[in-house]
Amino acid sequence: MSETWSGKSSGTEAVRRLGVKYPIVQGPFGGGLSTTKLAATVSNLGGLGSFGAYNLPPDDVLRVTKELKSLTSRPFAVNLWVSDHDPGGLSLTQEEFDRAYAFFEPFFRELGVDKPERPRRFSQRFEDQVDALLEARPPVFSFVFGVPPANVLEACRERGIVTIGAATSIAEAQALDNAGVDLIVATGFEAGGHRPSFLARAEDSLMGTLALTPLVADRVKAPVISAGGITDARGIRAVLTLGAQAGQLGTAFLACEESGATPEHRAALFSDKARATVLTRAFSGRLARGLRNRWSEEMSAHASRLLPFPVQGWFLSQLRPAVVKAGRTDLISLWSGQGAPNLRHRTATELMDALVHGLTQPEESTRQ
């Protein structure tokens, strides 16, 4: 990228493939943190809005996609998780369930929540969700934690659905590229939320955004979207210089009032608490970055007792309504990237306006 974004009338290949106006992607959030209002707002303002649907049953994947199409005529992405469970996380016997509950029981008692019934399955099946997604035909299908089967990618091509996969290493990016994925997100460990590694342990795939971006961009054919630690136009400019063709912002959009984050979560992102994030498996069973709180601290002493994904997260989800109702932040995931202390904007419109201004105006100042 040279002087300003407007100086490149045709944009990057990523912008052309996505059909958006600006090289701005809103990161998808799972667990009820995504909203159609947020995704549609970003899309309507020229970026790519995204909706994290990994926890939704197939009927809701259809419903959300239909609702987004009613809110915007611009491209948007629906995001799923290719790998929907870790070893031991598919189902539990009643004996295993009772043993797992005993670990969480003190917190259920503290919050006055009854012991939940053992579910048949702790998460949605990717195969069922992706069938619904193909039927719904969103403009863009983004995914994490793996590469969809070849028949799914072919079905996307037949339907004109653009595909975006996430990589945390060179090897993962090359696997996505070899499979024919349209665009690749190179996601550095600075990013908030889950580390979507799929070829090696997430703990062994912790590369920073500034290192990962050019390493991936130099080795794949697909356009690269860079994610991790980007909160403003300066960050987007930086990754474009390093070979990316768009920047993805997660925490900056999560902090906006249009997201599904609780008011307490958003307030924490704008407080001094945002200076201390931690990578932990304590919330879901998979490695993720969030703000330090009581849960992450107490669970650090019980790492060997944490349950596999998604069982660990399922038990916490049973506590979530009571925690949210009480306005507490100590027993709930507070996803956040390392760039949160530089957050400035509380609505998606304000954030998009600042990003666009910073990309299209001379570089007098992009810290807005």
Rank of each mutant, 00 (worst) to 15 (best):
A14F: 00
A14N: 05
A14H: 01
A14W: 02
V15F: 00
V15M: 01
V15E: 00
V15C: 00
V15H: 00
V15Y: 00
R16F: 10
R16D: 08
R16E: 10
R16Q: 14
R16M: 03
R16K: 13
R17H: 13
R17V: 09
R17D: 10
R17P: 14
R17W: 13
R17N: 15
R17A: 15
L18R: 12
L18N: 15
L18I: 13
L18M: 15
L18P: 11
G19S: 10
G19I: 02
G19T: 08
V20T: 14
V20F: 05
K21H: 14
K21L: 06
K21F: 08
K21I: 05
K21M: 12
Y22Q: 08
Y22M: 08
Y22I: 03
Y22A: 04
Y22T: 09
Y22F: 15
P23Y: 12
P23R: 08
P23S: 11
P23F: 10
P23W: 13
P23L: 07
P23Q: 11
I24H: 13
I24Q: 13
I24F: 14
I24P: 09
I24G: 13
I24T: 12
V25Y: 14
V25I: 15
V25S: 13
V25T: 15
V25P: 09
V25L: 14
Q26C: 14
Q26I: 15
Q26R: 12
Q26D: 15
Q26W: 12
Q26N: 15
G27C: 14
G27E: 11
G27M: 12
P28A: 08
P28K: 01
P28Y: 06
F29Y: 12
F29T: 09
F29P: 05
F29A: 14
G30T: 04
G30W: 04
G30R: 04
G30S: 06
G30L: 01
G31A: 11
G31V: 10
G31H: 12
G31D: 13
G31Y: 13
G32K: 01
G32H: 04
G32P: 02
G32E: 07
G32I: 02
L33Q: 09
L33S: 06
L33W: 08
S34F: 07
S34I: 02
S34K: 04
S34A: 10
T35K: 00
T35S: 00
T35M: 00
T35G: 00
T35E: 01
T36F: 07
T36P: 05
T36Y: 07
K37T: 13
K37S: 11
K37E: 13
K37N: 14
K37I: 09
K37V: 14
L38Y: 03
L38F: 03
L38C: 02
A39K: 10
A39H: 09
A39Q: 08
A39C: 09
A39V: 05
A39M: 11
A40H: 04
A40M: 00
A40K: 01
A40V: 00
A40T: 03
T41Q: 09
T41W: 07
T41M: 04
V42K: 04
V42E: 09
V42Q: 04
V42I: 06
V42C: 01
S43G: 07
S43K: 02
S43L: 02
S43Y: 11
S43N: 03
S43W: 04
S43H: 07
